[in-house]
Simulated scan of single mutants.
Amino acid sequence: MQTESGASPGSQLLPVLSGLVDLLRQLQGPEQPSSVALTVLRLLAERGPGRVTDLARLARVSQPGMTQLVGRMEKAGLVRRVADPGDGRAVLVELTAAGREQRARTFAYHAATLDTLFERLDPRDSDVITQALPALIRLVDAGHAERPGHSPSGGEL
């Protein structure tokens, strides 16, 4: 499928999404965690406790790198390690109340930044973007449905 410009919708959307992701990664807010730490907080909030190996795979980082990150996050009180009830030899990482609060603060900061950017737009542009949100959500859901082992509704990692 191609648009009037001859480019596919995916090739037009990708640079825009990449720019938005870059913008969010570059935001410097209060106690701003790294983008990978934010991914870990999101995964644990949405899916529940998980193993370091699963977090590393889903965040697309090495297992040693994830182990180090989880250690730093644990020292900061954002996560804790708990015994896996299904396997006494394994350990799970779970979100703490402080981790939930950090995620909420970061989300609020990012949302406020985006709201400020929306205010700079022509109201028609803001309306068009807002009207496109349900379709973008369906696009994300369609992508999740294509990935085996992924549950958009959450659940264990």
Rank of each mutant, 00 (worst) to 15 (best):
A56R: 09
A56D: 04
A56T: 13
A56E: 02
R57A: 15
R57Q: 09
R57S: 10
L58I: 08
L58E: 08
L58C: 00
L58R: 14
L58T: 05
R60S: 15
R60E: 15
R60I: 09
R60F: 12
S62M: 04
S62Q: 11
S62A: 12
S62D: 10
S62C: 09
Q63S: 12
Q63R: 14
G65A: 11
G65H: 00
G65C: 06
G65I: 07
G65D: 03
G65W: 06
M66S: 07
M66L: 10
M66I: 08
M66Q: 08
M66H: 07
T67Q: 09
T67V: 09
T67K: 08
T67A: 13
T67M: 06
Q68S: 11
Q68Y: 07
L69A: 06
L69F: 03
L69M: 10
V70E: 04
V70R: 02
V70A: 04
G71K: 03
G71C: 00
G71P: 01
G71H: 08
G71E: 07
G71I: 02
R72T: 05
R72K: 11
R72D: 04
R72Y: 07
R72H: 05
M73G: 01
M73E: 00
M73H: 01
M73N: 04
E74S: 13
E74A: 12
K75Q: 10
K75W: 05
A76E: 07
A76T: 04
G77S: 03
G77N: 04
G77I: 06
L78S: 01
L78I: 06
V79K: 01
V79A: 03
V79M: 05
R80W: 08
R80P: 04
R80T: 13
R81W: 11
R81M: 12
R81T: 14
V82T: 14
V82I: 15
V82S: 12
V82H: 11
V82P: 09
V82Q: 13
A83Y: 00
A83W: 03
A83S: 14
P85N: 12
P85A: 15
P85D: 12
P85G: 13
G86N: 15
G88Q: 14
